[in-house]
Design a protein around this nucleic acid. Structure first.
Lengths: 337, 337
DNA sequence: CTGTTAGCGCTTTCAT
DNA sequence: ATGAAAGCGCTAACAG
């Protein structure tokens, strides 16, 4: 029992005018007589006429849709980023197609493919932790679909991106630990794929250098972000003859897992061992032992900035212009509790 | 520099055959000669031909897109629900358009409108806390867009829904408190709009009745879910001459705020006052004082179930059949720590 | 100021 | 086994 919705044709037929006149009337085209315009609008309203967007998408080669591919929505970082993205998108009368990669490359590829099929006007992406190459994103150039990476940005040339500069805050975070008397500071890094830009590590190194502290390679371990991965990494640190007294870790979620594990191992948090982290997600305010400091990465602002950049690219594309690759870097901020 | 993608026509032209033959060949239509079929497929592959989905959407009157409208993504409940939704959608080769109402009716309306314009094949919704009517959803019937509500389901006739039965668990939760010696149990409810189905309250009442405990109306307060709202509600409870020794509260987030506030007020959590809650979100495992018990509402399963129902409705619609209203109720489960 | 016409890319009768 | 033609709903160039 498919209801059939009124079309422009139907209105035209009833009014004994042409479809194009109706179309123009509805668009307030200047060259339409007031009388017919009124009549058209009146009838359109009566019939509850609504333009068939799929027809328009088809004709205009635009879908007013952007695709968003990210690792997951569970992390408050990403859900906050979406807020920025959605706000900007809605302002532009766009809507967001969403897909979670769950840190799985194959799924990420499928999502990009599906979004391409849906002819999204652009894609925003934060890559999965298992993303070793970005061909699937590069392919989008063949379809004139601009891609903007944010936060988890691949270390590649010829991409558009928005991210936070974590270097300065990393230096600051480690210096803060050093000033607080820590001499052996562990660094619990993320998976290698995500460390293509070594800002965290570089900052860690730089702080050591500035304070003439030697860097012990065995203090640097990594996790694939899973609970188990984090535990075994923390284990590696705890088994060292000379344990670290502080750990700088990839993000707050990893840190929460690490802290939980350290407690299980009977370590006194903030006495035996301190934690400093990244993301500064709000949930940490409710936990018993939050990281002592965390680097705020402004997810909302990253979302806004990435989406604005994407729209600039979309607009340029429509105008037929080439766009130079833009890599916007926002600053981060070390938040000390 | 709009690249132009190869079309069926282009292939037809190069092969000196007709577009319809190409179309059929690509669809493995039985009546196409093997020879031409091969030739078509070969050329299509060479040219990287990909069907223009917008044209197909337009023609088929289907977009392979479902709209998801929910209050926010911040709460782990909703992000978990999306996982179920996305998984089922992807299985059906669908993708999800997302929109957060941020508990604002006007925004919810705008989202529904936008999704309608995008001609989504169906809508999944969890209503905002300020949603006092659901006309905007009911409108969708005029467009043959089925709507399935989940979790936050309006109390209305003639809707499809998936939700958890909270009544039994509510009785159980309150009985558990009573058995643990509590005689004055506060109930911190959500905003009136969301309490259209009073399962939580009914369960609260029933447990009291079963144990012959009188119900003191002043123990029942409500929050609009904001931090301040929750604080003043808790305040009301704490100012009572006879304070409650336990509080059953709307969900874990509200509970976390309530606990934080109670601590500020120098109450000893789990001594002076205990909390029992709903949702059982994972973050509570990291917090110092989680609710003593929480009602698991199986967000992933709700998401799966709601999406499966939606697809059944979509399929029936395509088959031109009417569907009776389905209201699926899953069971919940009181999880005691 | 308005109508005619063509066409977006694809599917689908209806012929042949 | 293949082609011709129509049409989905809308827009826009071209003609008056």
């Amino acid at each position: 029992m498919e209801k059939k919705l009124p079309t422009i044709k139907e209105i035209a037929r009833r009014l004994n005018i042409s479809a194009s006149t109706v179309s123009r009337a509805l668009h307030d085209h200047p060259s339409i007589g007031l009388r017919t315009k009124m009549a058209v609008k009146k009838l359109a309203a009566e019939l509850n006429y609504e333009p068939n967007q799929t027809a328009i998408f088809f004709k205009q080669r635009k879908t007013f849709t952007i695709g968003l591919v990210l690792p997951n929505l569970r992390e408050e970082f990403f859900s906050a980023a979406i807020n920025g993205i959605e706000d900007v998108a809605l302002d532009h009368n766009y809507i967001v197609l969403i897909g979670q990669s769950h840190d799985d490359l194959a799924r990420e590829q499928k999502l990009v493919e599906t979004m391409k099929n849906h002819r999204v006007d652009g894609i925003l992406a934060s890559i999965s932790s298992s993303t070793t190459h970005i061909e699937h994103f590069e392919q989008m150039k063949n379809y004139d679909i601009p891609v903007v990476f944010f936060d988890r940005v691949p270390d590649a040339k010829d991409i558009h991106s928005v991210s936070c500069n974590l270097y300065d805050s990393s230096v600051e975070a480690v210096e803060w630990l050093i000033r607080n008397g820590h001499k052996r500071i562990g660094y619990l890094q993320g998976p290698p794929t995500l460390n293509m830009k070594h800002e965290r590590l570089d900052g860690y190194m730089e702080a050591h250098k500035k304070h003439k502290l030697p860097v012990d390679e065995s203090l640097i371990v990594s996790t694939n972000l899973s609970v188990e991965g984090t535990r075994s990494a923390v284990d590696a640190l705890l088994q060292l003859k000379k344990r670290p007294t502080a750990i700088l870790s990839f993000n707050d979620y990893v840190t929460l897992d690490a802290i939980q594990y350290a407690r299980q191992k009977k370590l006194a948090i903030n006495k035996d061992i301190c934690f400093v982290s990244y993301a500064n997600v709000p949930v940490t305010q409710y936990v018993e032992f939050p990281p002592l400091a965390s680097v705020e990465q402004f997810p909302y602002d990253q979302g806004v900035s990435a989406t604005e950049l994407l729209f600039r690219l979309i607009d340029k594309k429509v105008a037929g212009q080439e766009s130079p690759y833009e890599n916007i870097v926002l600053k981060s901020e070390l938040i000390i509790r």
